[in-house]
Design a binder for these strands. Structure first.
Lengths: 319, 319
DNA sequence: TTGAAAGCGCTAACAG
DNA sequence: CTGTTAGCGCTTTCAA
């Protein structure tokens, strides 16, 4: 910068001001400085600037990852979420620092101006860890679970409710909910589902489910059909579970949707291309990402923000 | 740090050394300093350190994203790639800066010690842009295309070759390749496919294909069957295309695999759960991510590295 | 409208 | 083994 100043015949501080578009600098001077900067391919030293300004212009995104990105964080959703976050953050000058919290946080992560937590599912360790180092934080997930946090989630209760309404409209009377309520978002889906059914005097069957995989879904449904052969509707907390369930239903001689209606969750490409194409509750992950990004920015800027819930709708396909 | 030094009764530089586990400092002193640091929740100022050390301990990962993360970068692969990269980089002290190059690079991105380029497919603008600012760079994709670059890719030629071998073993004689060769990796798959078939005196049919979607696959195959009704094998450059193709085949009264064998690419969950379960060429994206990360580290450390190709294998399922 | 001085927090180099 | 000195590149006072 000093070199550049010499070349342009001004002082370093003027270079700084010119390149930052400060109104304090003469338009003509500014242009001259910028031309020289351009010519010499000069770029700010970010570390120096951040040191001086006491911020990093960085937001850490913490994703839960075991060796690879597993759990409900597999599939395309987190990518959409990440896409939304990245889009919104980079267009406002922030960088996105992608990280797990495996083996303690890196210095860079701790230096982030804010933190977005994704896919913390049932486990809340990461949340507490981040909270401890006192950075602004926003969480993706089930809103009600963490009342003191700013949480963005989609309207899981309404998602469950929509599934229930659909089953009622179809005249179904022996519905099942598939999903582990230990997972906050799943619990909310069940709540919405059950409370709507209850208005019609129906109580859903809720077998114990562990995991999020196709096989988990298939196994549970196999066992379930022994005990409750008269099941005629099935709402799964994820498309993967729903697909497993359909497989088991067919293997047990049930027709879908003639004998049993099935609704999944997340409206994944996998579900949409499945045969039969899966009906599913849709949530817009890109929008969610954008919203998460906005809220963390607000928090960083010292503004107050509240939790927020995104709309959800049912995509009816063949099942 | 100065405060901490005072409290611990040493100088700032000793605090610095103690916290960095420098062997220059007495074990006992180190423990005392660390205890005090722990107690006061002290953490390094990363900007100051980076300024002093003239590096950022950051690697930028550039993903091609239109508003959302599209193209072949949709689906679960890039997440696995990202997972591998993040895992390897964070365990070696580097942070991962996720970014597109939409609207010019942010200062933070330019300050990265190295850059990994993902999903640059047919378009090489990003590559040239990054090249211009002279940072170490590693690219994911088709190796042969960019001879001056360090590229990590999976063995696309062998992938194509495996599909061809399989068709030959099944006695097929009228194979089709589905995929746009403008995309470097697809071109390599076609090369391997065609060259192996040629050994048996067979020339594949290669219809023009645009896009990567299920619908694109379906449309092309519908048109194709008019001109070439005797097609008996189909190798698609992606699982999505393969699924579209199967749909079209069935709609045209062909049985899969009895009348037409189909092989996809990427071995996605979508393909694996499809009915019928799709045979597909598998590549390990997590390993690829790890390798990309290792190579960028080597480059940052000033070591020489070469392009590398990862193994690939055929997963035979029902089609 | 421009500039000089000072310092953000850290660590390499050089004593001791 | 520990400390002193100096300076990384930037921007916020304060002064001209």
């Amino acid at each position: 910068m000093a070199d550049l100043a010499k070349i342009a015949g001004v002082s370093a501080i003027t270079v700084s001001r010119a390149l930052r578009e400060s109104p304090l600098v003469n338009a003509e001077t500014r242009e001259r400085v910028r031309a020289v900067a351009q010519e010499y391919g000069y770029a700010f030293n970010v570390s120096a600037r951040n040191l001086r300004l006491r911020r990093s212009m960085t937001v850490a995104v913490v994703v839960e990852m075991k060796p690879t990105l597993e759990r409900q964080m597999s599939g395309p959703y987190p990518l959409d979420l990440l896409g939304g976050i990245t889009q919104e953050l980079t267009t406002t000058g922030y960088s996105v620092l992608l990280t797990s919290l495996q083996g303690g946080a890196l210095p860079n992560v701790q230096a982030a101006d804010g933190v977005i937590l994704l896919g913390q599912g049932a486990n809340e360790d990461a949340m507490h860890a981040v909270q401890r180092w006192g950075r602004p934080m926003v969480v993706w997930g089930a809103v009600s679970r963490h009342e003191s946090q700013v949480v963005v989630g989609s309207d899981n209760r309404r998602g469950g409710s929509l599934a229930a309404d659909r089953f009622i409209a179809l005249g179904r009377s022996r519905p099942v909910f598939l999903g582990d309520p230990a997972h906050g978002e799943f619990a909310e889906r069940l709540e919405g589902f059950a409370s709507t059914l209850r208005k019609y005097g129906i109580e859903p069957i809720v077998p114990a489910v562990e995991g999020f995989t196709v096989n988990a879904g298939a196994e549970v449904v196999h066992a379930l059909l022994q005990k409750h052969p008269q099941v005629d509707a099935l709402f799964a907390a994820s498309d993967l579970l729903a697909i497993g369930a359909i497989r088991a239903l067919i293997e047990r001689g049930r027709r879908v949707p003639d004998d049993v209606s099935v609704i999944g969750y997340d409206d994944t490409p996998l579900g949409a291309t499945y045969v039969p194409p899966l009906s599913s509750v849709h949530q817009n992950f890109v929008d969610a990402g954008v919203l998460l990004a906005r809220k963390i920015r607000e928090l960083i800027d010292g503004q107050a923000t509240a939790s927020e819930t995104l709309p959800t709708h049912l995509v009816v396909r063949a099942t």
